[in-house]
Design a protein around this nucleic acid. Structure first.
Lengths: 135, 135
DNA sequence: CTACAACCCGTAGGCACTACAGGAGCAAGA
DNA sequence: TCTTGCTCCTGTAGTGCCTACGGGTTGTAG
């Protein structure tokens, strides 16, 4: 499989695949005589792993760590679990935060009904001092 | 008020304030004889507006547009409301997406109990093909 | 034979910051 | 008076994670 097809089946942009290779999260693949990259099903799985981890909000450094863990199956799962817990905490707080924002946006829209900007709550709501948030 | 104090009271990083000025979302402030920036309460409010809008997920281009709307209070509210609606849609979908991720992370953690990586659900879950998500 | 797609590499651009280098101004203490 | 240390100045480079582009080669279909 060449890079174009891998991009299609994985949904990962072709240039992003090359970027991952440069960054060392994808191994350098075999090459055809003409220099083109050829990917195995192992590469496809690994790219799927990376994509999925990225979708879950792991950054590339974390992805590298997870891949390293995957490479030594005799190692303990504790570290992977800990990373997932960290990720879960961050997802929880993002959800809570977004739900506050959603309420505010709803209120802004509800209170703005064809008025002029002078009475427009959308602008006004944004002009209010932001609530103090815990760091 | 000088830039350091503005940074403290607004919670916006000092270098970010200068960045906003370069980008034209904050007007160039008055200067003292020694060249230091001095900010008025109008600047403080404007920065609060920007910070709040950024927190709500508006990008700097949208912030500029909102500021322009704010500057002409006789204009219709329709545009501001439409922008808020767009933002609301994106917030809704981000929440939905994160809730799926949260469930998955919870499941991963629950199923990983001191096992070796070979049986680790965290790794395994990431290796599974990603579920098809609506764009 | 020619058009065109798919690939190659290297580099630059984009967003929203963030950091750093190197220098000047200013207030307060020894 | 000198020095320490803080705040500020400018300009530039780096970050994360891609994405785009330019200019070249290879492969394929009509």
């Amino acid at each position: 499989m060449q890079i174009g097809e891998l991009a299609r089946v994985s949904g990962v942009h072709l240039e992003t695949i090359r970027y991952y290779e440069r960054e060392g999260v994808l191994p350098r693949p075999a090459r055809l005589a003409n220099g083109r990259r050829v990917y195995s099903s192992a590469d496809t799985r690994r790219l799927g792993f990376i994509r999925h981890a990225r979708e879950l909000g792991f950054d590339l450094t974390q992805v590298r760590a997870l891949l390293a863990l995957q490479e030594e199956p005799e190692a303990s799962c504790t570290e992977a679990s800990r990373m997932a817990q960290t990720q879960l905490d961050s997802v929880e707080s993002r959800i809570a935060r977004l739900m506050v924002l959603r309420e505010e946006l709803r209120r802004m829209i509800a209170e703005c009904r064809d008025g002029a900007v002078a009475e427009c709550r959308v602008i006004e709501a944004l002009t209010e001092p932001a609530p103090v948030l815990p760091a």
